[in-house]
Design a protein around this nucleic acid. Structure first.
Length: 292
DNA sequence: ATCGAACCTCCAAT
DNA sequence: AATTGGAGGTTCG
């Protein structure tokens, strides 16, 4: 096997690679067995269908990849990891109360990712009424049965399937893979995407309201899933997914019963309360509660 | 408008 | 050992 290429990113702000990769945003990363001759823990995953291995040592992110992919991989990783986010400003907006302060110090460096919108959409449709191990399993299955065959110097692997590739599976194919009632949602989403009705990758950059409206027009996508997709793949840092954990946190720490904010308004209440980086607040609150 | 139940499947807890 | 309940939600009645 050819010698892999190793590049580095120098961080100028707090970053915690491991917490970020396994914080429930992305589901194809895996931790590798320790390498003999390198320091740091390595993680393998895929960015734009390119396999990369990442590790963090102090303020350096190491990137290992097949040398046939050129230097643009570095740029792709930086983009994916959102290393440019101004964490100091973000933490500044999170210093208003003790609970948030604690979350930011405890998980300092935790980041939002910038994933591929289509992959993110399919992933979070899968997340409905589901748990993390099974979400990972479903994503693996859909890649292994519909994604393009690719090879690099580490060996063979599969890309995340395009909408057309998922069309080939069809609803029944998806059911056979164990998607259950989510099969018809994903099948429909794939048809809508391949026919250009939604064009999720074109949504980035549009307004919060426009994107939300487009996304919830897809079956299987409600307010929660839409906000996940917007936050984890479309640069909407104000997106605020309200799931059962976040609801619990809000009720316990912020919105007491006398405030009588109905569940349906919890999202807008939070966005007003936490501001333009509400999505980051959400991720820290969620992570803290989930890890507790 | 609002509120439960039902939904596929897996698997941990009876 | 067989059964039940629930899981990071959405849809339908």
């Amino acid at each position: 096997m050819a010698k892999p290429k190793i590049e580095t990113i120098k961080l100028t702000q707090p970053y915690d690679l491991k917490e970020t990769l396994y914080s429930g945003q992305a589901f194809r990363w895996r931790q590798l067995e320790p390498y003999k001759h390198t320091e740091g823990i390595w993680h393998e995953g895929f960015i734009n269908s390119i396999r990369v291995r990442l590790s963090q040592v102090g303020n350096t992110i190491n990137i290992e990849f097949d040398p046939k992919h050129k230097e643009f991989v570095i740029q792709a990783v930086e983009t994916y990891l959102r290393v440019e986010d101004d964490m100091f400003s973000i933490y500044d907006t999170m210093s208003s109360d003790q609970y948030l302060k604690k979350a930011t110090s405890q998980y300092r460096g935790l980041h939002i990712l910038r994933q591929d919108p289509w992959e993110c959409l399919v992933t979070f449709i899968c997340s409905a009424n589901n748990n993390i191990p099974r979400i990972r399993q479903l994503i693996e299955h859909i890649c292994n049965s519909a994604g393009k065959h690719l090879t690099d110097h580490y060996g063979a692997y599969r890309a995340f399937p395009t909408s057309s590739e998922i069309n080939n599976l069809g609803e029944q194919g998806l059911r056979n893979l164990g998607f259950g009632f989510r099969a018809k949602y994903i099948a429909k989403a794939a048809v809508m995407e391949s026919e250009g009705q939604i064009a999720v990758s074109q949504l980035r950059g549009r307004s919060y309201g426009e994107i939300l409206e487009s996304l919830v027009s897809i079956p299987g996508v409600g307010d929660k899933v839409a906000n996940c997709v917007m936050l984890f793949s479309m640069d909407c840092l104000e997106a605020f997914p309200v799931d059962v954990w976040v609801r619990r946190i809000l009720r316990e720490n912020y919105v007491m019963q006398e405030d009588k904010v109905p569940d349906s308004q919890l999202r807008t209440w939070s966005q007003q309360h936490f501001g333009p980086f509400a999505g980051y607040v959400n991720q820290y609150l969620f992570h803290k509660r989930r890890m507790a």
